[in-house]
Protein backbone atom coordinates (compact mmCIF):
# COMPACT_ATOMS: atom_id res chain seq x y z
CA UNK A 1 0.00 0.00 0.00
CA UNK A 2 2.68 2.37 1.08
CA UNK A 3 4.88 1.31 -1.74
CA UNK A 4 2.21 2.15 -4.20
CA UNK A 5 1.93 5.60 -2.83
CA UNK A 6 5.62 6.22 -3.24
CA UNK A 7 5.61 4.91 -6.72
CA UNK A 8 2.92 7.33 -7.60
CA UNK A 9 5.18 10.12 -6.53
CA UNK A 10 7.05 11.79 -9.37
CA UNK A 11 10.79 11.87 -8.62
CA UNK A 12 11.91 13.17 -11.97
CA UNK A 13 11.62 16.78 -10.92
CA UNK A 14 14.13 16.40 -8.08
CA UNK A 15 17.52 17.93 -9.11
CA UNK A 16 19.34 14.79 -8.02
CA UNK A 17 22.69 15.51 -9.58
CA UNK A 18 23.03 18.96 -8.09
CA UNK A 19 22.00 17.86 -4.67
CA UNK A 20 24.36 14.93 -4.81
CA UNK A 21 27.44 17.05 -5.60
CA UNK A 22 26.52 19.49 -2.86
CA UNK A 23 26.05 16.64 -0.46
CA UNK A 24 29.47 15.20 -1.15
CA UNK A 25 31.08 18.65 -0.74
CA UNK A 26 29.28 19.18 2.50
CA UNK A 27 30.44 15.80 3.65
CA UNK A 28 34.06 16.78 2.95
CA UNK A 29 33.72 20.01 4.88
CA UNK A 30 32.12 18.14 7.69
CA UNK A 31 34.98 15.64 7.84
CA UNK A 32 37.64 18.34 7.84
CA UNK A 33 35.92 20.27 10.58
CA UNK A 34 35.43 17.13 12.59
CA UNK A 35 39.13 16.29 12.35
CA UNK A 36 40.22 19.75 13.42
CA UNK A 37 37.72 19.78 16.25
CA UNK A 38 38.93 16.40 17.48
CA UNK A 39 42.54 17.49 17.44
CA UNK A 40 41.86 20.63 19.45
CA UNK A 41 39.57 18.85 21.86
CA UNK A 42 42.03 16.05 22.38
CA UNK A 43 44.66 18.53 23.43
CA UNK A 44 42.22 20.35 25.73
CA UNK A 45 41.30 17.12 27.42
CA UNK A 46 44.88 15.90 27.95
CA UNK A 47 47.00 19.05 27.90
CA UNK A 48 50.07 17.25 29.22
CA UNK A 49 49.90 14.15 27.05
CA UNK A 50 48.84 15.42 23.67
CA UNK A 51 50.59 18.23 21.96
CA UNK A 52 48.80 21.05 20.26
CA UNK A 53 48.92 20.62 16.48
CA UNK A 54 51.79 22.56 14.97
CA UNK A 55 51.33 25.87 13.28
CA UNK A 56 52.09 24.36 9.90
CA UNK A 57 49.55 21.59 10.20
CA UNK A 58 46.86 24.04 11.36
CA UNK A 59 47.69 26.32 8.47
CA UNK A 60 47.43 23.52 5.90
CA UNK A 61 44.16 22.31 7.38
CA UNK A 62 42.67 25.78 7.14
CA UNK A 63 43.89 25.93 3.60
CA UNK A 64 42.06 22.71 2.76
CA UNK A 65 38.93 23.95 4.50
CA UNK A 66 39.04 27.15 2.51
CA UNK A 67 39.26 25.32 -0.81
CA UNK A 68 36.44 23.04 0.17
CA UNK A 69 34.24 25.93 1.19
CA UNK A 70 35.12 27.71 -1.99
CA UNK A 71 34.02 24.81 -4.22
CA UNK A 72 30.89 24.46 -2.12
CA UNK A 73 29.94 28.11 -2.61
CA UNK A 74 30.62 27.96 -6.32
CA UNK A 75 28.50 24.82 -6.53
CA UNK A 76 25.67 26.49 -4.70
CA UNK A 77 26.09 29.56 -6.79
CA UNK A 78 25.94 27.77 -10.14
CA UNK A 79 22.77 25.94 -9.14
CA UNK A 80 21.29 29.06 -7.69
CA UNK A 81 18.11 29.24 -9.71
CA UNK A 82 17.19 25.63 -9.47
CA UNK A 83 17.70 25.54 -5.73
CA UNK A 84 15.74 28.70 -5.19
CA UNK A 85 12.77 27.37 -7.04
CA UNK A 86 12.86 24.04 -5.31
CA UNK A 87 10.56 23.40 -2.42
CA UNK A 88 11.16 20.72 0.10
CA UNK A 89 8.45 18.78 1.81
CA UNK A 90 8.29 15.48 3.60
CA UNK A 91 6.69 12.52 1.95
CA UNK A 92 3.47 11.35 3.49
CA UNK A 93 5.25 8.21 4.70
CA UNK A 94 7.66 10.21 6.84
CA UNK A 95 7.03 9.60 10.55
CA UNK A 96 6.44 13.27 11.24
CA UNK A 97 5.12 12.85 14.75
CA UNK A 98 8.17 10.89 15.96
CA UNK A 99 10.88 12.88 14.18
CA UNK A 100 9.49 16.31 14.69
CA UNK A 101 12.78 17.80 15.79
CA UNK A 102 14.65 16.39 12.85
CA UNK A 103 11.95 17.48 10.50
CA UNK A 104 12.02 21.12 11.65
CA UNK A 105 15.81 21.15 11.31
CA UNK A 106 15.66 19.70 7.83
CA UNK A 107 12.95 21.99 6.64
CA UNK A 108 14.46 25.14 8.00
CA UNK A 109 15.47 27.51 5.23
CA UNK A 110 16.58 30.50 7.21
CA UNK A 111 19.78 30.51 9.27
CA UNK A 112 19.59 30.43 13.05
CA UNK A 113 19.49 33.85 14.74
CA UNK A 114 23.03 33.52 16.15
CA UNK A 115 24.35 32.67 12.69
CA UNK A 116 22.60 35.73 11.38
CA UNK A 117 24.53 37.70 13.97
CA UNK A 118 27.85 36.22 12.79
CA UNK A 119 27.08 37.09 9.22
CA UNK A 120 26.14 40.66 10.10
CA UNK A 121 29.36 41.02 12.08
CA UNK A 122 31.45 39.69 9.23
CA UNK A 123 29.84 42.04 6.73
CA UNK A 124 30.40 45.00 9.05
CA UNK A 125 34.05 44.12 9.52
CA UNK A 126 34.54 43.75 5.79
CA UNK A 127 33.08 47.18 5.24
CA UNK A 128 35.34 48.77 7.84
CA UNK A 129 38.36 47.07 6.34
CA UNK A 130 37.45 48.28 2.88
CA UNK A 131 37.07 51.84 4.08
CA UNK A 132 40.41 51.89 5.82
CA UNK A 133 42.22 50.40 2.81
CA UNK A 134 40.64 52.90 0.53
CA UNK A 135 42.07 55.72 2.57
CA UNK A 136 45.57 54.23 2.70
CA UNK A 137 45.51 53.21 -0.93
CA UNK A 138 45.24 56.85 -1.86
CA UNK A 139 48.42 57.62 0.02
CA UNK A 140 50.02 54.44 -1.33
CA UNK A 141 49.39 55.65 -4.84
CA UNK A 142 51.04 58.91 -3.98
CA UNK A 143 54.07 57.12 -2.63
CA UNK A 144 54.28 55.03 -5.78
CA UNK A 145 54.11 58.09 -7.94
CA UNK A 146 56.84 59.76 -5.95
CA UNK A 147 59.08 56.69 -6.25
CA UNK A 148 58.56 56.60 -9.98
CA UNK A 149 59.40 60.26 -10.28
CA UNK A 150 62.56 59.69 -8.23
CA UNK A 151 63.84 56.84 -10.37
CA UNK A 152 63.10 58.79 -13.53
CA UNK A 153 64.98 61.76 -12.16
CA UNK A 154 67.97 59.63 -11.19
CA UNK A 155 68.15 58.15 -14.68
CA UNK A 156 67.92 61.61 -16.14
CA UNK A 157 70.75 62.82 -13.95
CA UNK A 158 72.85 59.75 -14.66
CA UNK A 159 72.78 60.44 -18.35
CA UNK A 160 74.60 63.68 -17.78
CA UNK A 161 77.67 61.86 -16.41
CA UNK A 162 80.17 59.39 -17.75
CA UNK A 163 81.88 56.96 -15.42
CA UNK A 164 85.31 55.57 -16.22
CA UNK A 165 87.55 54.03 -13.57
CA UNK A 166 87.50 54.95 -9.92
CA UNK A 167 88.96 58.42 -9.88
CA UNK A 168 87.31 61.78 -10.22
CA UNK A 169 88.31 64.15 -12.98
CA UNK A 170 90.08 66.30 -10.38
CA UNK A 171 92.16 63.41 -9.17
CA UNK A 172 93.11 62.45 -12.69
CA UNK A 173 94.11 66.02 -13.49
CA UNK A 174 96.14 66.21 -10.30
CA UNK A 175 98.03 63.03 -11.16
CA UNK A 176 99.34 64.56 -14.38
CA UNK A 177 100.88 67.53 -12.59
CA UNK A 178 104.41 67.48 -11.20
CA UNK A 179 103.20 67.10 -7.67
CA UNK A 180 101.04 64.20 -8.71
CA UNK A 181 103.99 62.45 -10.29
CA UNK A 182 105.91 62.76 -7.07
CA UNK A 183 103.05 61.30 -5.13
CA UNK A 184 102.93 58.38 -7.51
CA UNK A 185 106.58 57.63 -6.94
CA UNK A 186 106.10 57.87 -3.22
CA UNK A 187 103.18 55.47 -3.35
CA UNK A 188 105.13 52.98 -5.41
CA UNK A 189 107.99 53.21 -2.92
CA UNK A 190 105.62 52.56 -0.04
CA UNK A 191 104.17 49.62 -1.88
CA UNK A 192 107.53 48.07 -2.60
CA UNK A 193 108.58 48.66 0.99
CA UNK A 194 105.51 46.82 2.16
CA UNK A 195 106.16 43.85 -0.10
CA UNK A 196 109.77 43.90 1.04
CA UNK A 197 108.67 43.70 4.67
CA UNK A 198 106.30 40.93 3.81
CA UNK A 199 109.12 39.08 2.10
CA UNK A 200 111.32 39.46 5.16
CA UNK A 201 108.61 38.15 7.43
CA UNK A 202 107.99 35.12 5.27
CA UNK A 203 111.72 34.55 4.84
CA UNK A 204 111.80 35.46 1.17
CA UNK A 205 108.38 34.19 0.19
CA UNK A 206 109.18 30.68 1.19
CA UNK A 207 106.40 28.18 1.15
CA UNK A 208 105.05 27.86 4.68
CA UNK A 209 105.08 24.48 6.33
CA UNK A 210 101.82 22.64 6.45
CA UNK A 211 100.31 21.77 9.82
CA UNK A 212 100.92 18.13 8.99
CA UNK A 213 104.65 18.75 8.59
CA UNK A 214 104.74 20.51 11.94
CA UNK A 215 102.88 17.61 13.50
CA UNK A 216 105.33 15.16 12.00
CA UNK A 217 108.15 17.04 13.65
CA UNK A 218 106.34 17.20 16.97
CA UNK A 219 105.44 13.53 16.99
CA UNK A 220 108.21 11.77 15.13
CA UNK A 221 111.21 14.08 15.11
CA UNK A 222 111.20 14.35 11.33
CA UNK A 223 112.63 17.67 10.30
CA UNK A 224 110.59 19.28 7.57
Amino acid sequence: MNMNKVERFDTSSIPLETLETIRSRLNQVHLSLRKLFDQLNHHNRHPTKVRYPSYQSLQSQFQILLTQLHTLTSNLDSNDEQLKSTNVYPLPTFPAAQQENLLTTLLRKKPLPEIDEWIDNAILKCKQLNESTQQSSASLRQVDEFAQWCSAKVEELQEEFHFYGFQTAQELEHSTTEEGEKEKVKKAALESKRTEEERAITDGDKKPLTPNQILKFMFQDVRP
Partner: peptide, 11 residues
Protein backbone atom coordinates in the same frame (compact mmCIF):
# COMPACT_ATOMS: atom_id res chain seq x y z
CA UNK B 1 111.67 29.36 14.14
CA UNK B 2 110.95 25.87 12.94
CA UNK B 3 108.96 27.44 10.13
CA UNK B 4 110.96 30.45 9.05
CA UNK B 5 107.99 31.98 7.22
CA UNK B 6 106.50 33.15 10.52
CA UNK B 7 103.40 31.14 9.84
CA UNK B 8 101.17 30.54 12.81
CA UNK B 9 99.87 27.12 13.65
CA UNK B 10 96.32 26.70 14.91
CA UNK B 11 95.06 23.72 16.79
Amino acid sequence: LLDSTNTFQVK
